[in-house]
Amino acid sequence: MTDSPALDPPPSATVILSLRNVGASADQLAERLRRLSRVEGVDVLVVDDGSTDGSADRLGERIGEADGIAYVRHSDNAGVAARRNEALARATGEFIWFVDHDDDWTESGLAALRGHAEGVDLVVGRADFQWGQDAHERRRIDGAEVGAPQDIDAPAAAVLLLDGTIHGFLWSKLFRRTSLGVDPFPLIVSQSDIVGVARAIARSRRARLIPETVYTYIRLPGSITRKRKPDLRALERAHDDVLALLNDAATPSLRDLFTARFLCLAAVKTAVRWNADRAAIDEALLLACRHARGLSIPSIARRSLGIAAAVTLLRTVPALLPVALRSALAVLDLGRRVRRPSHREEPDA
């Protein structure tokens, strides 16, 4: 592994933002986009996916004729994956950064990513998750624990994605445009991000892990619903696509770990965390049990005792897994309210 100095000047980058119904945040968003567009070597591509709240007009007025910002508007709603594919086909920057309108990101995050892009196809930064205003209501959700930039080859990056060291979020990563190819995001309602990340890794030669936090995913009261049924078909499709794309790096033990973590546990945990109804939780349990049957518990246990315990429950007393997850999440939430700020992730089980 090698350390890499920052570039001067850094490579060109296109910032891609697919949005819909941004509401009152249109003014603030326009200002952020204008600041980005004034950075040398950066252009911005915004695609409105059929907004119906009047924000498309307001955003267009605030952006105006700003140099370096292309604003594409649609009357229909095709979904974020389709709009990102469309934007990618229009992009001209050597690298691509994807952002969402309601999160915390600035030109400094992009500068950190661009500054480490020389000689690699993928730069992986760190990202935080913030769900309230207090300091303890924040945790690390992506990024490897490195003290200095480290270079790895594509197979090593594939392992990190499969074992959960890095996650499938787009916005904590800078992609060489050619590594994404054409239409990297499948047209599914969720989980298309991780498929795009896997596709980029499969088409890359080298990646660079950096210690900087470049993005904060925001969930504030009212920003998302607390009752959400997981889309199990999208989850299965993404699972299958990722394993197919990273087949060369996916050893049997890694496949088992990825299936247990990303598919079995995530299906049930999402339903429990967001207070889905009983039918949705039962449906998630059925899917998880079906996929858990062929998994090797000993091989999973060598990598994660918590995930192995969850698979054991799925194989023996599946009805206990939602109970165990509720208890674990309640303890976790209580601990966050009383302890000092931490960047630890939620446990997998």
Results as ranks from 00 to 15, higher is better:
residue 166 I to F: 10
residue 8 D to E: 11
residue 282 D to V: 06
residue 206 R to W: 04
residue 273 R to K: 14
residue 61 E to R: 14
residue 89 A to W: 02
residue 136 H to D: 02
residue 43 D to E: 15
residue 301 A to W: 10
residue 80 V to A: 13
residue 327 S to F: 02
residue 264 C to N: 12
residue 337 R to W: 10
residue 317 V to C: 05
residue 262 F to I: 10
residue 141 I to F: 08
residue 70 A to K: 08
residue 287 L to S: 10
residue 261 R to Y: 14
residue 246 L to E: 00
residue 198 A to H: 01
residue 122 L to Y: 02
residue 24 A to I: 09
residue 92 T to C: 06
residue 250 A to H: 13
residue 71 Y to M: 04
residue 128 D to G: 05
residue 181 G to F: 08
residue 74 H to M: 00
residue 171 W to D: 05
residue 343 H to E: 12
residue 76 D to V: 11
residue 37 S to L: 01
residue 171 W to N: 05
residue 258 F to I: 07
residue 117 A to W: 07
residue 173 K to E: 02
residue 343 H to S: 14
residue 77 N to G: 07
residue 214 V to T: 12
residue 258 F to W: 10
residue 111 A to P: 05
residue 254 L to S: 14
residue 232 L to A: 07
residue 125 G to L: 07
residue 184 P to T: 07
residue 67 D to R: 14
residue 135 A to W: 12
residue 295 L to S: 11
residue 304 S to K: 12
residue 48 D to E: 08
residue 37 S to A: 15
residue 164 G to W: 12
residue 206 R to L: 11
residue 92 T to E: 15
residue 34 R to K: 15
residue 209 L to N: 03
residue 91 A to K: 03
residue 220 L to Q: 12
residue 52 T to H: 11
residue 179 S to M: 01
residue 87 A to R: 04
residue 343 H to T: 12
residue 45 L to D: 06
residue 294 G to R: 09
residue 190 S to K: 09
residue 7 L to S: 14
residue 327 S to C: 11
residue 24 A to E: 13
residue 313 L to E: 14
residue 101 H to Y: 13
residue 220 L to H: 09
residue 161 L to N: 03
residue 344 R to C: 03
residue 343 H to A: 09
residue 172 S to K: 05
residue 239 H to K: 02
residue 281 I to R: 15
residue 90 R to V: 06
residue 175 F to Y: 15
residue 340 R to F: 01
residue 325 L to Y: 06
residue 121 D to R: 05
residue 111 A to V: 02
residue 229 K to Q: 12
residue 326 R to Q: 03
residue 93 G to D: 06
residue 7 L to N: 10
residue 20 R to W: 08
residue 315 R to K: 15
residue 136 H to G: 04
residue 15 V to I: 13
residue 88 L to V: 00
residue 69 I to C: 07
residue 184 P to W: 02
